[in-house]
């Protein structure tokens, strides 16, 4: 009855994504936060709070997040924290830029590593915002925006 194979769904919900969604890394509050931001996706109600500790050495020493969301948004936030710890804020921002670029269907030369697992969203336009939410929140935290990052 279902003509379309479920490959695309498997591509979206890869094992790595499901693993991070079930057991998000760096989930919770962070002691000694220097930067934080809220991320809101009003369409589906995803709500994240991202915490960063940026040291005097201009490195992201630690990152964590709290909140609730779909598997894609939670996995993306979890992968984000894994990825950016140790980066300079400017590096993290340019990585975020490349990733968002890639997830919205454009080419990038930046090596995305395990973040390529999020590429499945390109076939699901309504889910791209779920995958990019945490990264918008991170940019907003680094910029110390006054308003929450929103996907709208």
């Amino acid at each position: 009855m279902y003509k379309m194979s479920t490959d695309e769904l498997r591509e979206l919900y890869r094992e790595l994504i499901l693993d991070h969604a079930r057991s998000p890394r760096h989930f919770g509050k962070l002691p000694e936060v220097t930067h934080s931001a809220d991320g809101l996706n009003p369409l589906c109600g995803d709500k994240l709070k991202l915490y960063l500790r940026i040291g005097d050495d201009d490195r992201i020493q630690d990152a964590a997040f709290e909140g609730s969301g779909c598997a894609i948004s939670v996995a993306s936030a979890s992968l984000l924290t894994d990825t950016i710890i140790g980066m300079r804020p400017t590096e993290a921002q340019s990585f975020a830029g490349a990733l968002i670029h890639r997830l919205t269907g454009k080419q990038t030369n930046v090596e995305l590593g395990k973040l390529r697992a999020l590429e499945g969203v390109r076939e699901f336009p309504s889910r791209i915002k779920c995958a990019t939410l945490a990264w918008h929140a991170m940019n907003s935290a680094i910029r110390q925006d006054k308003v929450p990052a929103s996907t709208e």
């Binding site: 769904l9 589906c44 109600g45 969301g69 779909c70 598997a71 699901f124 889910r127």
Partner: peptide
């Protein structure tokens, strides 16, 4: 399963 994931599937 988050409702949004159910909706996509």
């Amino acid at each position: 399963i988050h409702p949004h994931d159910l909706g996509t599937i």
